[in-house]
Simulated scan of single mutants.
Amino acid sequence: MYQNNGKPTILGDCILLVISIIINSFGNALTVSLNLGSALWTASAVNMSHLFNMNLGNILLLEGVAVILANALMLREFDWHRMLGNVIFMVPFSYLVSGLSSLLSTLDIQRLPLIPSVIIDIIGVMFIGCGISIYQRLNLLLHPNDDLMQIIRFRYLHGNAVTASLAAFSIPIVIMIITFAIQHQLWAVNIGTIVALLFQGTFIAVSDKYIFRKLKHQRLS
Rank of each mutant, 00 (worst) to 15 (best):
L215E: 02
F127V: 14
N55S: 03
G131I: 08
V162T: 03
L11N: 14
I115H: 15
F180A: 07
G37A: 12
H158N: 10
S170A: 14
N160W: 11
Y95C: 10
E63R: 08
L197C: 10
V97W: 04
K7Y: 03
G12R: 02
L198W: 04
M176N: 08
H158C: 10
L215Q: 03
L34F: 13
I19H: 04
P113T: 12
I134Q: 00
V67W: 01
V97K: 08
T106W: 14
L73D: 13
R155C: 15
N28Q: 13
I21G: 01
V189N: 07
F212L: 04
L114A: 04
L16I: 02
T179R: 10
N35Q: 15
L96Y: 11
L142V: 15
F212W: 06
N86C: 10
L142P: 13
L84T: 02
D147E: 14
N190I: 15
R111H: 15
N4I: 14
L30R: 10
I182E: 13
S38C: 13
L96K: 02
L141Q: 00
H143M: 05
L138G: 00
P8L: 09
L104V: 12
R82Q: 08
E63M: 14
P116R: 06
L73Y: 13
G57E: 11
N58M: 04
S117W: 11
N160R: 12
A205H: 05
R111F: 14
I211C: 06
L34D: 08
I134E: 00
D121K: 01
I59S: 06
T9K: 10
A66M: 04
N139D: 02
V174P: 10
A66F: 03
Q136S: 10
